[in-house]
């Protein structure tokens, strides 16, 4: 599906988005010049560790940043040529849910604890279809719940969120998100709170919905496995910036940024049984006071003491092939002799 999808016009384009938080210790640039496109039927995976800005980016897209601390300092989010960031409250509300919908990590905190699930899905149906009668909306809600795999939804929908399991709750959230056939679904760690067997079910559900409705999905996750299973394109974020952006096949087969390469190399796997994992040293930087130059330089195996990494912020540039980008001064060295061993790339087949 990826080749056809990519040649089509993107449904949503995030262009040079920057987000800043005002804190007691000065401004924090949580998202710094991030761009990504997602086309119909395409899944873009955004991967990164805690604090890398991936969730902030998603919230900013829909104008959901915590106020007043967070603000968008630059960039645009284009859907159908309209910039969501310039829309007023009213217009933005019309876009949310109807054109761009979002699914969060924790369905329990996103659901009203004292309202039945069916009532909440019905409510979501009516938000953008006010002319719908109560009973028609309810019918639609039942259909939606059955669409996301809730059998016997009419009866079970009467239950309250705490009576449903985590996986079922996430299904209900997805049902609400797709109630108005949005063109883009932003899913922020949708399966992180779920068990692996249930995670597999929910991912499959997302896949099915996408195939049926040509849905564009932005899938945010820390789990490289989940991204590999789902994404057509992958955007890797580190310290608020995009460090690599390519097709999924390329990112996993030939990572072009030492951070991506390091992450992949550090995953426990068969070939490494009984050997130490090639771990990335150190921990992610504090964004209050980020490292100079390349944010990854203190942990990078490729740097080898070179000054340029400290002096100059690397820009995202094309390496290897069309549409394969990385932000590293020395990305070319990654798949040649010394560079590869420095970050443990060679271990991966």
């Amino acid at each position: 599906m990826s080749t056809t999808a990519e040649s089509r016009q993107p449904v949503m384009s995030i262009r040079n988005l920057s987000v800043c938080f005002d804190t007691a210790h000065g401004p924090v640039h949580a998202v710094d010049d991030v761009s990504l496109d997602v086309g119909p039927g395409q899944t873009v995976g955004v991967v990164g560790e805690s604090g890398c800005g991936k969730t902030t980016m998603a919230l900013a897209t829909l104008g959901l940043l915590p106020q007043p601390a967070g603000r968008v300092t630059a960039g645009e989010v284009l859907v159908d040529g309209r910039d969501l960031l310039t829309l007023g409250r009213r217009e933005l509300c019309r876009v949310r849910g109807a054109e761009v919908a979002m699914v969060f990590q924790d369905p329990m905190s996103a659901l009203h604890p004292a309202q039945s699930i069916l009532a909440q899905v019905t409510e979501a149906v009516r938000t953008h279809a006010l002319d719908l009668s109560a009973s028609a909306a309810r019918e639609r809600a039942v259909d939606l719940l059955e669409l996301v795999g809730v059998a016997d939804a009419r009866a079970r929908g009467r239950a309250y969120p705490h009576e449903w399991s985590g996986g079922m709750r996430q299904r209900a959230m997805i049902a609400m998100a797709v109630a108005h056939r949005p063109r883009v679904l932003i899913a922020d760690e949708p399966t992180t709170a779920l068990d692996v067997t249930v995670q597999a079910q929910v991912l499959e559900l997302l896949q099915t919905l996408q195939d049926e409705h040509d849905l564009a999905i932005v899938l945010i996750s820390h789990d490289l496995g989940v991204i590999a299973e789902m994404a057509d394109r992958v955007v890797v974020m580190y310290a608020g910036q995009v460090v690599e952006s390519s097709t999924a096949t390329d990112v996993f087969a030939r990572p072009r940024h030492p951070y991506t390469a390091g992450l992949l190399a550090s995953l426990p796997r068969l070939e490494l049984e009984g050997q130490p994992l090639p771990a990335i040293p150190g921990s992610p930087p504090n964004l209050v006071d980020p490292p100079a130059g390349c944010a990854f330089h203190p942990r990078c195996g490729l740097r080898q003491g070179r000054r340029r990494c400290v002096a100059e912020v690397p820009v995202l540039r094309e390496i290897g092939g069309v549409g394969q980008c990385a932000a590293c001064h020395y990305a070319e060295e990654l798949h040649s002799g010394t560079g590869a061993t420095a970050v443990g790339v060679g271990v991966r087949p």
Binding site: F21, T23, A24, H25, G51, G53, T55, T56, G70, V288
Partner: peptide, 14 residues
């Protein structure tokens, strides 16, 4: 760095 700076940044995951 005083950790309290981070408590004001829920969205950044800090």
């Amino acid at each position: 760095v005083d950790a309290s700076a981070r408590t004001e940044l829920p969205a950044v995951g800090l």
